[in-house]
Design a binder for these strands. Structure first.
Lengths: 110, 110
DNA sequence: TTGACATATTCCCATATCGGCATATATACT
DNA sequence: AGTATATATGCCGATATGGGAATATGTCAA
C-alpha cells in the first residue's frame, strides 16, 4: 500500500508546500490562474494541477469569467485541520508552564 | 520530482492518519510501543516505522526503561500547524457571518 | 474561420511510500 | 551461555506522486 492519495483528504492535500502557498495567496482575494503563476513563479501546468487537487478536497472554489477562472480559498475546509491541532493546545500550554517553572526554580537557586 | 519525504516536515508527517492516531494516543500519557500496537490494532513493525517518522520530525520523544521504550507526543511540534491554520480563522469567520446574515435576511422575508 | 489568449490534461520518469514478512538488536532472567 | 521479551530494521512490490514538455480544450475578437 503506497501513501494515501493527495486528494484523499485535507491533511494529504496541504502536505505540499506549494499548495499551502497557493492557499495563502488565495485567502484574501480571488485570483485568476495567471496571477498565481506570476506570484509564485511556478509553471502554469503545475499550478493547474495543484489547483485540481485543492479543488477535489474542497479547499478552493472556482468562478469562471470569460476565458479566465478565478480561484479563491475556501477557508471553511481548513477548519478540521485547525480543530485537530487545537486538541493539542492544552498539552503545549502545560509544557510551557513546566518550562517556565523550571526556569524560575533555576533562577531562585542563584 | 516525487512527493516530499514524510520526514521532511510536520505537514508531511501528519498526512498519514495512523500517525495522527498515534499522536492523539500519546498526547495524554507516555506509552510503550506494545500499548500502541494493542490500542490501534496495527502490526508492531508498522508502529515502529511510524514512530521513527514522528521522531525524525520531533513530534514524539522517547525514554528508555529497561527493554521498553516510552513514547510521548511533543505537542510543541504541532504548534506550527496550529499557527498556519489559524491564519485562515478570520476568513472562515467572515464566511460564517455572511452565511448568518443571509439566513437572517431569508427569515425576515417570511 | 483563423488566431490569440487562458487554463487543463496527458504522457513520461525517478522516487518515496506503506504493508508484510523475516530478521536484527537490545535488555532481562535463569 | 541460552532463552524470552521489546523494539527496530531490511527487503520486497504495488502505487501515486510532481515536474517537464507537449498538447488539448475553451473562449474571445477580428
Amino acid at each position: 500500500m503506497p501513501r494515501a492519495s493527495t486528494t484523499s483528504d485535507v491533511f494529504n492535500a496541504i502536505a505540499e508546500s506549494r499548495r499551502r502557498d497557493i492557499l495563502s495567496f488565495l485567502a484574501q482575494q480571488e485570483r485568476p490562474v495567471t496571477d498565481i503563476v506570476l506570484q509564485l513563479g511556478l509553471e502554469q501546468p503545475s499550478v493547474s494541477k495543484h489547483l485540481r487537487v485543492l479543488r477535489d478536497v474542497g479547499l478552493v472554489r472556482v468562478r469562471r469569467e470569460g476565458r479566465q477562472k478565478f480561484y479563491r480559498t475556501n477557508a471553511e475546509a481548513i477548519r478540521p485541520l485547525y480543530e485537530w491541532t487545537s486538541t493539542f493546545q492544552r498539552f503545549w500550554r502545560h509544557q510551557l508552564i513546566r518550562v517556565k517553572e523550571r526556569a524560575e526554580a533555576q533562577a531562585n537557586k542563584i
